[in-house]
Simulated scan of single mutants.
Amino acid sequence: MNKYLILCVDDEREVLDSVIQDLDCFEEHFLLEAAESVQEAKHLIDEFEQQDVKLALIVCDHIMPETTGIQFLIDLNQQTSTQATRKLLLTGQAGLEDTVEAVNHSSLDFYISKPWQGDELRAAVKQQLTQYVLKNEKDLMPWASILDTEKIFEAVAQNRLSYGE
């Protein structure tokens, strides 16, 4: 089932390592990668796209050297191959204007302030991945034990009603 990628982007290595550690529970079913820059993130996205691995979720910091996380998320939202990607901003430095821009132009799906709690991050990621899978997978049952079981079962039941099974 590792045909989906979770990509975490932050220019501070310690923060990135902490995020990856908090999300390692998803590694059995998703590819989990880290990038210390937007350039590295773009390279990883391209590399995985060539292997037919889709970017399901990006967890991105805002303040980074070459471009902001919000601008990167806006860029991803404008590309067909990453438009469906769930976008989570994890930052302590985005002001109200930046956040509004992210919501309005990047289809930001979730926002978590630094410092974060591991449980809070895992719960948000689980919900975002559930939303992604519901919109992009035909066979939902294998995901029921990994993601939001209740939402997966509701979708399966709704699909059966829709198709008259």
Rank of each mutant, 00 (worst) to 15 (best):
M1H: 03
K3E: 10
K3V: 01
L5I: 04
I6A: 06
C8F: 03
C8T: 01
C8R: 02
V9G: 08
V9P: 09
D10K: 01
D11L: 07
E12V: 14
L16S: 08
I20C: 08
Q21I: 11
D22P: 03
L23E: 05
L23I: 09
D24F: 04
C25H: 12
F26K: 07
F26L: 11
E27R: 14
E28G: 05
L31Y: 13
L31P: 05
L32V: 12
E33I: 06
A34V: 03
A34Q: 10
A34P: 11
S37T: 12
E40V: 14
E40T: 10
A41R: 14
K42S: 04
H43P: 01
L44C: 03
L44K: 15
D46G: 15
E47Y: 10
E47V: 09
F48C: 08
F48A: 02
Q50I: 03
Q50A: 14
Q51M: 05
D52L: 14
V53T: 13
A56G: 06
I58T: 15
C60S: 15
C60K: 14
D61N: 14
D61W: 01
D61K: 06
D61G: 11
P65Y: 14
E66N: 15
E66C: 06
T68G: 02
G69I: 08
I70G: 05
L73G: 01
D75V: 11
D75K: 13
T82G: 02
T82A: 08
Q83T: 08
Q83H: 14
K87S: 05
K87Y: 05
L88H: 00
L88C: 03
L89Y: 12
L89A: 02
L90M: 06
L90F: 06
T91C: 00
T91R: 00
T91S: 14
T91I: 00
Q93T: 11
A94Q: 10
A94S: 14
G95E: 11
L96N: 03
E97F: 12
E97W: 09
E97C: 06
T99E: 05
T99P: 02
E101A: 09
A102T: 11
A102E: 09
A102K: 14
N104D: 13
H105F: 12
H105N: 15
L108N: 06
L108A: 10
F110N: 03
F110D: 07
F110K: 07
F110W: 03
Y111S: 01
I112F: 00
K114G: 06
P115D: 00
P115C: 08
W116N: 02
G118M: 01
E120N: 00
L121K: 11
L121W: 10
A123K: 13
A124T: 15
V125A: 05
V125T: 15
V125L: 01
Q127F: 11
Q128I: 07
L129C: 08
L129V: 11
T130F: 03
T130N: 07
Q131R: 09
Y132A: 02
V133H: 08
L134F: 07
K135R: 05
K135S: 08
K138A: 09
M141Q: 11
P142G: 07
W143S: 08
W143H: 04
A144C: 04
S145G: 07
I146F: 12
I146W: 08
L147P: 08
L147Y: 11
D148N: 15
T149C: 06
T149L: 02
T149Q: 11
T149H: 11
K151Y: 04
I152H: 13
F153E: 09
E154Q: 13
A155K: 09
N159G: 12
L161D: 01
Y163G: 02
G164V: 13
E165G: 09
